[in-house]
Nucleic acid binder design. Structure first.
Lengths: 347, 347
DNA sequence: CACGCCGGTTACAACGTTGGAACACGATAG
DNA sequence: CTATCGTGTTCCAACGTTGTAACCGGCGTG
């Protein structure tokens, strides 16, 4: 078993423990001769610093947590992938946690579980409200993904998000541009999450701009943004009498859209012939589904990069900085589910 | 900021630090009176033990790592989900890491990164060979998912796996039972991973048992088990001259199958009319794809549970136990991609 | 030549926790 | 009345690391 300590290295190199520590951390005040001697001893013994001891002494662990509602959701899995990559490049280790959409759990994790274990948290909140979060983040480094619910004045933490209103507006405008007039929206949230509200807002803006009415009957409520809820919601919409049935549907997540496509398939309705479908998330699953799914792609790498850098900055400076809001880019990918033509996926 | 220590609690309760420590850890030798007094002080001050200090003192951190090739692969994301749940119920915290299919990285992580940070590792190896792994796991608790490459005698660590040979045999037999005779296999691995070899073995067993020949031309090599490779491999197969084209295909992962379905869609071939498709992984994506995908479902909850329990046991007993191999159940779910009839998904 | 200075190094204490030995106390036994 | 015991508690050291202060030698300066 390893258990090589500074002391062992020090003895080997014939210097004091502190000097080894200085060499290991690259502190300048060491002569070239001793530096190389120590470096060799480190290599020979295979010394690795003990994170617990370091943390205990310095108060820094180099450990941050990423809290997402559910890892089995492709969007969050892909995001976690990017966050981990970005954090690693900055020398941070990421602990991935799932809140399972439970508000209490989100608050607990936002507080840093053992704040004594973590340096900071990146949280993708689903249920917890900003007010609740404000109470918890007692100047503990916290970056929120998405969900700026309050105006620019009432910011309770750093945020990284895409412009949800614009994204939704883009999608619905695209559907309108295809000549569709009865456009459903699947994803109005039971709990009224900020994301859901913002996407509905963009949808309505686009309808309004085109002089189309908003029909609440075409905006069913869902429990979660998963495939199952998309399936159930679309089944209901598909069974409406002919004149009332939508000719397009904007789903607030790719998973909802996948479920909706499945329901249309089962109902014998053609996509996009009878009903055009669009999602949002830019997941790989959307690209490969049949028909391939038109979706808004949030720049996940940018989101991850901004979030990690922002968190790292906040950890570095102990003093409370003003909160920042970063907006990451997004773009619309038009595919078969709205365009119709069969086209080869460019893998 | 928190920073409530045992010392603070001790002062408040008017006892020694050690007594508080005993109460917190539920050690019996404490009178009921002091116990409740201390408990109240703990609550009032909001004391939380400092994991780093605890780890430093005891050598246990309660942290285990799960190392998977790629989180963006639904199978691993779902598995991570289960592992996390199971570990939490046992009071362990899970650090999720990605190896990105790099052998060196797998070995590094198998060794416990800083072994001083982790109590153990659950590793899903992709490239690293058992021989290499045997060298690293210097009695450091390690559980491998899948991949028992050697016979029962040469076991280098605990394993949790499904019977890949049987699973593959089941699938190919199912395809044969539909009357298919030219059955392709997509997923023969460039590097010859154990999983790939075992699935090919089962495939060949089923062919042999039915008196069908194995045609190497129908078993293209792939780089990875992802959608892209499935797409490319199936494109090639679909462009074979009429008589040589397969009438069924067994993909060694659901992602490969999704890519294959996409290629068939683009080639204008019907599933399962022209080509039946089956995968393996039991992902949600397979259930909702169009057509829904026949797949073998490994019992992921069982795999996670066995792996975590096995690791926990090994951590508890410092002495080297004999290595164990646990086999988790799996079953075949027959869906539209082989059965043909359009059927409603039971969500 | 004495002085201060500075680069390079070391000694010591502390971070919060826990294992083990030591201790106080009342009860029980001899 | 003392010796023994068990129960509950305290004291001390240690885990591996780093910040602070102190130290030591040689160099340039006055």
């Amino acid at each position: 078993m390893a258990a090589v300590t500074l002391k062992d290295v020090a003895e080997r190199a014939g210097v004091s423990i502190k000097t080894v520590s200085n060499v290991v951390r690259g502190i300048p005040r060491v002569s070239e001769a001793t530096r190389s001697r120590v470096a060799r001893a480190v290599d020979e013994l295979g010394y690795r610093p003990n994170p617990s001891a370091r943390r205990l002494r310095t108060g820094r662990s180099g450990l941050v947590a990423l809290v997402v509602p559910d890892l089995a959701t492709p969007y969050f899995a892909e995001l976690a992938h990017h966050v981990r990559a970005e954090a690693t490049s900055l020398g941070l280790t990421v602990l991935i946690e799932e809140s399972l959409g439970d508000a209490a759990e989100e608050l607990r994790l936002a507080g840093g579980v053992g704040a004594s274990l973590l340096d900071g948290v990146i949280l993708s909140p689903l249920r917890a409200t900003p007010d609740e979060l404000a109470g918890v983040t007692d100047d503990f480094p916290l970056v929120l993904l998405g969900e700026r619910s309050y105006g620019r004045d009432r910011v309770v933490a750093d945020h990284v998000l895409i412009d949800n209103v614009a994204a939704a507006r883009d999608i619905t405008s695209h559907l309108i541009g295809l000549g569709r007039t009865r456009i459903a929206a699947i994803g109005v949230d039971h709990q009224g999450s900020a994301t859901s509200r913002q996407r509905l807002e963009g949808h309505q803006q686009a309808l309004h701009a085109a002089g189309l009415p908003f029909d609440p009957g075409l905006a069913p409520r869902v429990e979660e943004f998963d495939r199952r809820n998309g399936l159930l919601a679309m089944r209901a919409l598909a069974s409406l009498p002919a004149g009332e049935r939508p000719d397009a549907v904007f789903c607030f997540s790719d998973l909802l859209a996948v479920g909706a496509q499945r329901a249309l398939h089962e109902a014998g309705l053609a996509v996009p012939g009878d009903v055009a479908v669009a999602g949002i998330d830019g997941s790989q699953e959307a690209l490969y589904s049949t028909p391939s799914l038109t979706t808004v792609v949030p720049d996940k790498a940018a989101i991850a990069s901004l979030a990690v850098k922002c968190l790292a900055a906040r950890i570095r400076s102990r003093t409370p900085l003003p909160f920042e809001v970063h907006v990451a880019p997004h773009w619309l990918e038009e595919r078969e589910s709205t365009l119709g033509a069969r086209r080869a996926v460019r893998p």
